[in-house]
Design a binder for these strands. Structure first.
Lengths: 221, 221
DNA sequence: CCTACCGATCGGTAGG
DNA sequence: CCTACCGATCGGTAGG
């Protein structure tokens, strides 16, 4: 709350923020390729034509850079995958839109090395510390959201549905990265449709759930 | 074919082979945790109480060590997962046994850091070179074998079945590593059963396929 | 299999 | 934001 800036430093802050954004844009791409640990300060600095210590100053430590990269990736994931699906009504339609959005995001190549979280989570899956925690938070939020929508859609076992959908998405990512077969995406879409078709009950809603969401396809989103 | 060894060097070769085996046993565990690139010669040497250059001499380069580690992991995978399933008749039963064997192998913790290939494949998925190639070979052989058994079992789209089964297995691995929830394995088994139940046609075999394999459950394996 | 070393690069600091 | 530096560790080599 105390005003810490005056006219001159405010201009510095603006440029610093822009620099920081440029660093993070490159950092998430690099991390999606080389991993969050392979993301070295020296490499990142030379990529961006700046000095190591200049870059370092923005984050204070390598861990600070990694945390900022996870946050940047989560923001991008939210706007690329989650946000577009919010146009659909909750339940089956939104669940389908979330999964379709994820496969589209892989196919569009939003990150240079495939899904940022697919790469980073395997790298940090058995390392304690704040970076692993932040990754668990981000991935847990995604799986939890799939589960929530599966529950609204009336699935008998929403946790199972969420597990399957997340696994198929990750499988599409790693399969495409490893073998480069573009048919992977069609296979993933077919598998996702099959899971939702099989596990979402098409019965009328129970009395306790009285949200509007009709099940039929609406002509316009 | 030229005899290159005499009595004295043969004894040296025996001990060298034993040392090499001990190195690789530790190497695959370390690589399953830290990744194939994080597997450093210095760390591995100090873990085993030997000098860097002594260890180095067994493999000639870091790449040589990585290739040997992939081969060691593939051998272990074959004996832990594939070989036990060969007791079942080809087709649906063997397909089920392969998938069950994979989940069991995760649950038993055959490698200290979960599935060696799950970790290594994501690390090398966009790197050219012999290590990536060898990983693609090993993983491609596994997926190809699932596909073959799905085809024998009469699946309409064996490639799709193989993709789904492999993705669910990888999903179980990464989910368990990341969140440590032991229910993951039960979920993966349920998901695998659902895929096989849904996609393996229970029709009588076509005339062109005349292997014996009955579809009903036999009382004893 | 060892000791002793090489140049390169790592994360990070001092000082401006 | 920079130059100049630190100790540690990397993969790899020489020589025995």
């Amino acid at each position: 709350m105390t005003p810490r800036t005056h006219t001159r430093s405010r201009g510095h802050e603006r440029t610093a923020r822009r620099t920081r954004g440029a660093i993070l844009a490159r950092a998430v791409d690099l991390a999606s390729i080389e991993g969050l640990e392979g993301l070295t300060i020296g490499r990142l600095a030379s990529d961006l034509g700046m000095s190591k210590s200049g870059l370092f100053g923005h984050f204070g430590s390598k861990e600070g850079l990694q945390l900022a990269a996870v946050d940047e990736a989560a923001t991008r994931f939210a706007s690329e995958v989650v946000q577009p699906a919010l146009a659909k009504p909750e339940g089956e339609q939104r669940l389908r839109a979330l999964c379709a959005g994820y496969i589209d995001y892989l196919e569009r190549g939003v990150f240079a090395g495939g899904c940022f979280f697919g790469a980073a989570s395997i790298e940090f899956d058995d390392r304690p510390g704040p970076v692993g925690d932040r990754l668990r938070d981000a991935i847990g939020a995604w799986v939890g959201y799939l589960e929530e929508q599966a529950r609204v859609a009336g699935a008998a076992d929403p946790k199972l549905v969420a597990f399957e959908l997340q696994a198929l998405g990750q499988g599409a990512n790693s399969n495409f990265r490893l073998f480069g077969d573009p048919k992977t995406f069609a296979r993933a879409r077919a598998a996702i449709d099959a899971v939702i078709d099989a596990q979402i009950a098409r019965k009328p809603r129970q009395a306790s759930q009285r949200r509007s969401g009709r099940k039929g396809k609406s002509v316009r989103g």
